[in-house]
């Protein structure tokens, strides 16, 4: 059997929504190569998720809900994916370029000595070879790459249309894990969830703040050791987060804000943080250092709000506002609540 494999990532028993983008990309490749799509789903809820994949265009789903696969771990997941690839010899294996997707596909590509094309923003077929367009050199240049033989491809989140429900039917087949729990050398000891934040990589809207968020008119309580940190943290809580919440968006930050201790590293957008490309990126009190631009310049619409009209961020922006972010943001949040009926 030759087919296009797509790995559907699950979290807490449900498909990660961006995984349907991988299925959309796989459906596109399958049309180009006249091959069926086979969804591969591991972990809690895999059978139900496999059923959903079939309803969205896959002709079949290979699933395993074995306890050793309950939550994602590279070792047992890669062992099973590699075994399935060896058994079924797919022409391509597609997944979304999440942290798990990237390492799982790279591992299985290595195990099977296959081509790895990561972070694709476009896919195609040329003379039977799977091709991909990938951003390289920190997104400053694009590369057209081609795979010889089977292609393992990760697709950048939000670059492909999610596969829609098409009412399709197909079989869901249970497969057995390769590694027994006793063979798995990696044990997850604990997980500390970050509460109440939308994942930056999945977010359609991001509201980011820079060092200027410390220009909070409120006074830090007497005796506060670092007044700027208090002011900035208060700013994230009282003006940035409410705006992100009303927009259903995620909170980002510049490296300067992270290094100053204003917010955690998980929020950093830019060269040594996350690369994002949301529909809307609102840069608040961010000057726009080149390192920050590297992580957000491919956003669809960029709005810059800054007290300094000469800040470099305005060169990337579609809309700019010069003024006090502590006056403008609350007004913007109130206006959005009114207009969006929230």
């Amino acid at each position: 059997m030759s087919a296009i494999f797509v790995w559907i990532e699950t979290a807490d028993g449900a498909a990660r929504p961006t995984s349907w983008e991988a299925l959309g990309a796989a459906n596109g490749l399958a049309t180009g190569l006249s091959l069926p799509v086979v969804a591969v789903v591991f972990g809690k809820g895999a059978a139900a998720v496999g059923q959903q994949a079939v309803a969205r265009g896959a002709s079949k789903a290979l699933v395993s809900e074995d306890a050793s696969l309950e939550t994602y771990r590279l070792e047992p997941y890669a062992a099973l994916l590699t075994a399935l690839v060896k058994e079924h010899a797919p022409r391509a294996v597609v997944a979304v370029a999440t942290s798990a997707g990237r390492e799982l596909l790279a591992a299985s590509a290595a195990d099977t000595d296959s081509a790895m094309l990561s972070d694709a923003i476009e896919l195609g077929v040329d003379g039977g070879a799977v091709t991909a367009v990938r951003p390289v050199y920190a997104g400053k240049v694009l590369s057209d790459a081609a795979a010889d033989g089977a292609a393992f491809v990760t697709v950048r989140g939000r670059a492909f249309q999610a596969a829609a429900e098409s009412g399709g039917a197909g079989e869901v087949v249970t497969v057995s894990p390769v590694l027994a729990e006793g063979d798995v050398k990696v044990k997850v000891e604990s997980f500390e969830a970050e509460v109440g934040t939308v994942n930056l990589g999945d977010a359609a809207i991001i509201v980011s703040a820079g060092r200027g968020i410390a220009n909070n008119p409120k006074e830090a309580p007497a005796g506060t050791e670092k007044a700027d940190v208090w002011k900035a943290q208060d700013g994230f809580e009282t003006v940035i987060k409410p705006l992100a919440d009303v927009l259903g968006g995620a909170v980002g930050a510049s490296r300067a804000a992270v290094d100053a201790g204003y917010i955690g590293y998980a929020h950093q957008v830019g060269q040594t943080g996350k690369n994002v490309a949301p529909d809307l990126y609102i840069a608040v009190a961010i000057s726009g250092a080149i390192q920050h631009q590297a992580g957000m310049r491919n956003s669809k619409v960029i709005v810059a709000i800054n007290k300094d009209g000469d800040a470099p961020i305005f060169k990337l922006a579609r809309y700019g506002i010069v003024g006090d972010v502590y006056k403008i943001l609350p007004a913007l949040t109130a206006e959005l609540k009114k207009r969006l009926g929230k």
Binding site: M116, K140, V141, S143, D148, G309, Y319, G320, I321
Partner: peptide, 23 residues
């Protein structure tokens, strides 16, 4: 033997963003 090859590099499509200041 390499399995993935770069066929060509290409520049980003020109993105002409016109800034509109709101006052």
């Amino acid at each position: 033997v390499g399995k993935a090859r770069v066929v060509r590099f290409k520049n980003l499509p020109a993105k002409n963003v016109e800034l509109e200041m709101l006052t």
